[in-house]
Design a protein around this nucleic acid. Structure first.
Length: 300
DNA sequence: AAACACATCAACCGCACAGTC
DNA sequence: TGACTGTGCGGTTGATGTGTT
């Protein structure tokens, strides 16, 4: 039993969108919302299939799209997220406000993949390629992979919710990014990272201090959970709690933006597994310092 | 200036999954 | 419970732009 096509293809236009079509689509969605994508083209008077309309809107016409080249930080973030999520472009895109899955997928296929290859890293596993004679790296443990899968699923769910809420309840200018990351940090995703941190910390402590550490972690976890339930009324305190967990000094900035940046950085820099990520961290620095890496002489 | 190679990115295609009946 | 529908995602393609010979 084959699937029925998403719409009747006869008489429907394909190929690049014209400015007129864009205008029709934008005007329609602004006044009516997209509703059912399948019926949208008919209602809006477009000779396109619903799928095409959805793609055009999400990848190009959406008002929150950020255009222009990726910054080094964004590229670093993409690489780190790819190491965790793999080719789950939508989930990765959700962590980069204003960027689309298509855009990130293109960035990966045209630049980042090549750069990793040139650095002697397998773009899929992010592990050194043996033939490059790179430092031998232990494969990630099954536990790590399992955790990554859970994180991946959680990220995706969180991402979807965030994206939807952002789409329909635009936040004041300049506030969205920080709130966005704080939301992630205080979500289950953040919780699992916090728990990981607790385990890491406990493992390196004596039994006595381990007990107090786990208490501290538990109370932190509960605090974060409560904060989450209360929509994290005090963003700063949420982040400061994480500073305690990570054994970092609590001299974080009072600025909201700085706090959320710290939260994001903690999330990204967190040693999911030293086996998994440490070599990547080292290489990412090199990669950032040599933006022309993709133009290097490389066998790939 | 022309021809060619390569890079980029918008758009399409087909599959998977969740929801509905 | 299974057929069917709608939507989203990831892989791939092809048009266009840019650089090189």
């Amino acid at each position: 039993m084959g699937r029925t096509p998403c719409c009747d293809k006869k008489g429907l236009k394909k190929g690049p969108w014209t400015p007129e079509e864009d205008e029709i689509l934008v005007n329609y969605i602004k006044s009516n919302g997209h509703g059912s994508w399948r019926t949208l083209p008919k209602l809006a008077g477009l000779l396109r299939c619903g799928k095409s309309c959805r793609l055009r809107w999400t990848n190009y016409l959406r008002p929150d799209i950020k255009r222009g080249p990726f910054t080094p930080d964004e590229e670093k973030l993409v690489i780190q997220l790819h190491a965790i999520l793999g080719n789950r472009w939508a989930a990765i895109a959700a962590q980069l406000p204003g960027r689309t899955d298509n855009e990130i997928k293109n960035l990966w296929n045209t630049h980042l993949k090549k750069r990793l290859l040139c650095m002697g890293l397998d773009p899929q596993t992010h592990e050194p390629i043996a033939s490059f004679g790179a430092i031998k790296q232990a494969p990630a443990s099954p536990m790590t992979r399992h955790m990554a899968q859970w994180e991946s699923a959680r990220l995706e769910a969180e991402a979807r919710l965030s994206r939807e809420s952002m789409l329909f309840t635009p936040s004041p200018a300049g506030k969205s990014d920080s709130d966005y990351f704080l939301r992630i940090w205080n979500s289950e995703i953040g919780e699992s990272f916090r728990n990981l941190a607790c385990r890491e910390e406990s493992a390196s402590l004596s039994p006595n201090s381990r007990a107090s550490s786990s208490l501290k972690c538990e109370s932190t976890r509960l605090s974060a959970s409560n904060a989450n339930e209360e929509s994290c009324k005090s963003s700063k305190s949420c982040v400061e709690e994480e500073m305690v967990v990570h054994g970092s000094d609590s001299s974080c900035s009072n600025e909201l933006e700085d706090s959320s940046d710290s939260a994001l950085q903690l999330l990204l820099d967190f040693p999911i597994s030293h086996d998994d990520m440490s070599f990547l961290e080292e290489n990412i620095d090199n990669y950032n310092e040599s933006p022309a890496a993709d133009s290097m002489v490389c066998p790939f």
